[in-house]
């Protein structure tokens, strides 16, 4: 019977061909081109220089700054997500509740629009300083600082941390929590010994979904960083669009990709040791 079903699946596999075409045309082919540019110089001769250009002063500075932003954003998202999810759980707000809607709502709006809104809020004459002024507090200069970029990436990626953690925690059988309390565990111990360990698959999904895009983002730093603070994504963008040095741009892209893949391997390895989890 299962063989029969397999055959059926094979017969229908042609239905995946539009997607396969898409993947080949817009992912695999560009990757091959990027690799080709990354490993050659302007004249077309083989070289490692483009990959190694990450170690030049400007590039390594932007790279470290990207790591700081990505790691900071990930940590802040984790610290915000857990209390949020636990509060939702304790208030009995299920998967279909208003709170979930509120979390997902920003994701339906255009990404650039959201960042532009933050620019309005954080700028020196913006809404934040206006409100602070009303409260008799001095204006703060957040615009065009790392703090502004951090606010932007956290705002953007927080839902991607909340959703997998929320799903993991909502899947925990209420009986397990009762069993822990029955055996003498108070509220915090229940979290530390039962809820948190069982939410780790969701947490790891969240880390992947927040760390990688915040590491490689460049629009947020463009708009909220005033163009002066460069993430590695900004450097790559400029090599392509301003400097027209596709070889160095490709080289940096490949280096970044390798870094991201290596850091994700640790996460995936962790994950396969525990229960496998679907991202969401």
């Amino acid at each position: 019977m299962s063989e029969c079903r397999l055959k059926k699946i094979n017969r229908r596999s042609f239905l995946a061909s539009p997607y396969a075409l898409w993947i080949v045309g817009f992912t695999i082919l560009p990757l091959i081109i990027i690799f080709k540019y990354a490993l050659t110089d302007g004249a077309g001769a083989f070289t490692w220089d483009n990959l190694l250009s990450i170690f030049s002063d400007v590039h390594i500075k932007a790279f470290w700054f990207s790591i700081e932003i990505a790691a900071g954003c990930t940590i802040i998202c984790i610290l915000l997500a857990y209390p949020m999810v636990l509060a939702m759980k304790n208030l009995g707000l299920g998967r279909k509740g208003l709170s979930m809607f509120v979390i997902i709502l920003p994701m339906w709006m255009n990404f650039i629009l959201r960042i532009l809104a933050w620019q309005m809020i954080l700028s020196n004459n913006g809404i934040l300083n206006f409100l602070l002024g009303k409260l008799g507090m001095g204006p703060v200069a957040i615009a065009n600082t790392p703090a502004a970029i951090m606010v932007g990436v956290v705002y953007d990626y927080l839902p991607y941390m909340i959703l997998p953690i929320f799903n993991a925690i909502m899947d925990i059988d209420e009986d397990l929590i009762e069993a822990a309390r029955d055996l003498g565990a108070g509220g915090f111990t229940v979290f530390r010994r039962v809820i948190f360990p069982l939410s780790v698959p969701g947490l790891l999904s969240g880390i992947v979904m927040v760390f990688v895009p915040s590491m490689t983002s460049f629009v947020v730093s463009d708009i909220l960083g005033g163009g002066k603070l460069q993430l590695i994504g900004n450097v790559i963008e400029q090599e392509f669009t301003v400097g027209y040095n596709w070889n160095v741009g490709s080289g940096l892209s490949v280096t970044l990709m390798i870094f991201v893949l290596i850091s994700m391997m640790f996460t995936v390895k962790q994950k396969s040791e525990g229960k496998e989890s679907v991202i969401w």
Partner: peptide, 20 residues
């Protein structure tokens, strides 16, 4: 008194062992 402070223990129908 909350459950964690009581000197009784429960065996649940669904076992409820900690899977981790």
């Amino acid at each position: 008194l909350p459950p964690e402070k009581r000197n009784v223990n429960t065996v649940f129908q669904k076992y409820s062992l900690f899977p981790h």
